[in-house]
Design a protein around this nucleic acid. Structure first.
Lengths: 240, 240
DNA sequence: ACCTGAACACCGTTCAAGT
DNA sequence: ACCTGAACACCGTTCAAGT
């Protein structure tokens, strides 16, 4: 039926029309690749963000991605910085300690709520704009609290390390069957510790295992803040 | 030349003699598997400890290992606990803070000196005998320092988390080319931060990036110890 | 019970060749 | 310059079949 018009307009092969009528392969760009990667990660977790899977999503071959991305690690780092853009800025008004805790908790939540992201953040040092913004925010809050600059400079690393490690720990615990077993194993081992060979551990088993994740994380932050406030850096580092 | 005696003693096929004369396949056991795994890890890093590689080493097929080991994660956890046996016990005599720092430093060194081990320790909660012994040691030292038990019980997690994360960070930085790039990237980004948009970061760039790993780790431990000493756990957790 | 061959369903990365 | 097919060198895990 449409043979006639096809012969008319589509004579020189179908290429020109399919260029306009299909949503078609958008040209590859780094931004497009990262966006597609974030999409896969949100839907299926970072573990599914592989070069091959991503290439498939973008309707190309894995080799093509290497024009825009050095390797899988760099791709994961780019995803991380992208998601770091959603960390809430410090709310005004509250006590600086509370605001600091809120920013760190928001950071932890972002890592926690994307499967696999926290584990990757432990290893991939990010250096994107969103990460720098976060560092600036933390330094500003510590400064507001009167923390000496040298201590603040070293302290932000400790705070982020604690947040990241905690998110990773709980993310695996909640979502990975094997990790749940690990934790059950530890908890059984601690409770089963003999008072003969492990007197303090046996005595403190309940306390060691107690506490909601939120309560422990919050205590961790407050503990770090107190420590940072009270622990001077070595003399030869304190230049200011 | 030996044909006659061969015909004599080896008549019913070669099997009985090869049972005695070859070092031959030692029977598979969990301990043997873990030992072979530790060997591979020491020589080539945890990344090479795969089911297939290990099976090859043990002259069998990968499927055979699943009789003794649930999966790769469990295998890695077993290796970790094995290596934890080499963490030095606290030396007597010194100040409790120094002894605590020494044990934690030794733990960090063990993780650090085995390629890939620290990263795996961040994710795999160990529960083996050597890990329990380490927990006991830490609790004993904190007790000696008069740290309230509830704070000690939560604090050991923070201390080990800090040690593990630091080891992982430096292990990747030193040995993985890509990770070195990551770090160079961060350091360039921090130094390049604009005073307009990131005033504190720009002002503290040198301090943020300063310090030998050892100095920062030591400061981290002291900061945590001070924090643990000064931060009470929430009232409903402090039961004793 | 223990062990295995073979298969299933994947990986990252490179490279010569094409446009 | 950008993109690709095809290959290389691997993975973890399962399962039916053998001993």
């Amino acid at each position: 039926m449409t043979a006639h018009s096809d012969a008319h307009s589509g004579a020189r092969s179908g290429t020109p029309r399919s260029r306009r009528e299909r949503p078609a392969k958008p040209a590859l760009t780094r931004a497009g690749i990262v966006a597609a990667a974030v999409e896969i990660m949100s839907a299926e977790g970072l573990g599914k963000v592989t070069m091959r899977r991503l290439a498939q999503q973008l309707d190309t071959g894995p080799a093509s991605l290497y024009v825009y991305v050095r390797n899988t690690a760099e791709l994961h780092a780019a995803i991380l910085d992208e998601l770091l853009g959603t960390v809430e800025a410090a709310p005004a008004g509250d006590d600086w300690r509370e605001r600091l805790e809120k920013v760190l908790t928001s950071y932890t939540d972002v890592l926690f709520s994307h499967r696999g992201l926290a584990q990757s953040a432990l290893v991939a040092r990010p250096s994107g704009p969103h990460y720098l913004r976060l560092l600036e925010t933390l330094l500003a809050l510590l400064d507001e609290g009167g923390v000496p600059p040298g201590q603040a400079a070293w302290g932000i690393d400790l705070l982020l390390q604690c947040a990241t490690a905690t998110a990773a720990e709980h993310a695996t615990r909640d979502r990975d069957a094997g990790a749940q077993d690990d934790w059950d194993g530890l908890s059984a081992a601690v409770r089963g510790a003999s008072g003969q060979t492990h007197p303090r551990l046996a005595g403190l088993a309940d306390e060691v295992l107690s506490g909601e994740p939120e309560a422990r994380l919050s205590w961790g932050f407050r503990t770090l803040i107190n420590g940072i406030l009270h622990t001077p850096v070595p003399a030869d580092e304190a230049q200011d």
